[in-house]
Design a binder for these strands. Structure first.
Length: 231
DNA sequence: AGCTGATCATAT
DNA sequence: ATATGATCAGCT
């Protein structure tokens, strides 16, 4: 079957209708419908599930630095779930601007990315074959005032360290909801950062991630007693 | 078992 | 190299 594309949705309601139609479907069925190859596992295809769902929903992805649904300002994130329904991984948000020019939360990349997110839970229990893992009920989310206040505090604390040349002392232990971790092809990948004396240095590229504890709480509000793919 | 640090693939 | 999509795997 040939790969074909699906037109971008024109409203949030359309996004929701499409993603709700996927709820309960196994990834193998979605992949077959879209003519996508099924990897045996995700070891060498870590982004496969996210790319499949982007295609299925009509996201105009690619590697452009834009939301998945640019016209709607909506970002889509898959959320891999353990057998018990809790997210098993943190969620990558965006690259950390290591040259320190992004100093305003209001206009920050993190805030823009997280302003409107379509969370799409997907079964990720390694005991279940990839093709049999099902899509869950999605959640279209914006941070509450309380959530944003904590995200902002995390971001400001972390970015202050970046700007002050304290990058090398930042570990994944910093931050309540947000953390900074390496985000690179490998340990030899380098980019420019700020050294301890303000001088340019080469360092490992980093990314902002949302802790899985945060996304667990997000889902918990909506899936308190519900089943995986039905509300 | 959960978490941190490291890594994999693809497009531009 | 930097953006997109993330998960892997070793250590505590």
């Amino acid at each position: 079957m040939a790969v074909f594309s699906i037109a971008p949705p024109t409203s949030e309601d359309e996004v929701l209708a499409r993603v709700q139609a996927l709820a309960g479907l196994p990834l193998g069925q979605i992949a077959a419908h879209l003519g996508r190859r099924m990897p045996g596992n995700l070891r060498r295809a870590k982004g496969w599930v996210g790319e499949l769902l982007e295609l299925a929903l009509g996201a105009t992805s690619g590697s452009q630095a834009a939301p998945d649904f640019p016209h709607l300002g909506v970002e889509m994130k898959t959320l891999p779930l353990r057998a018990d329904g809790r997210p098993k991984e943190s969620t990558y948000v965006c690259t950390v601007p290591l040259t320190g020019f992004d100093i305003c939360w209001e206009t920050s990349w993190v805030r823009r990315k997280l302003s409107r997110v379509l969370w799409v839970p997907v079964e990720a229990d390694t005991g279940v074959p990839l093709s049999e893992r099902r899509v869950g009920m999605a959640l279209l989310w914006s941070p509450s005032a309380e959530e944003e206040a904590i995200l902002r505090a995390d971001w400001e604390e972390l970015m202050e360290m970046v700007c002050l040349g304290q990058l090398e002392s930042i570990t994944a232990h910093h931050g309540v909801y947000l953390q900074i971790r390496p985000k690179a092809a490998n340990g030899r990948a380098l980019c420019e950062g700020i050294g301890t004396n303000g001088e340019p240095v080469l360092t490992l590229p980093r990314g902002f991630y949302l802790r899985s504890g945060f996304t667990t709480t997000l889902l918990g509000r909506y899936y308190a007693t519900g089943s995986f793919s039905e509300r």
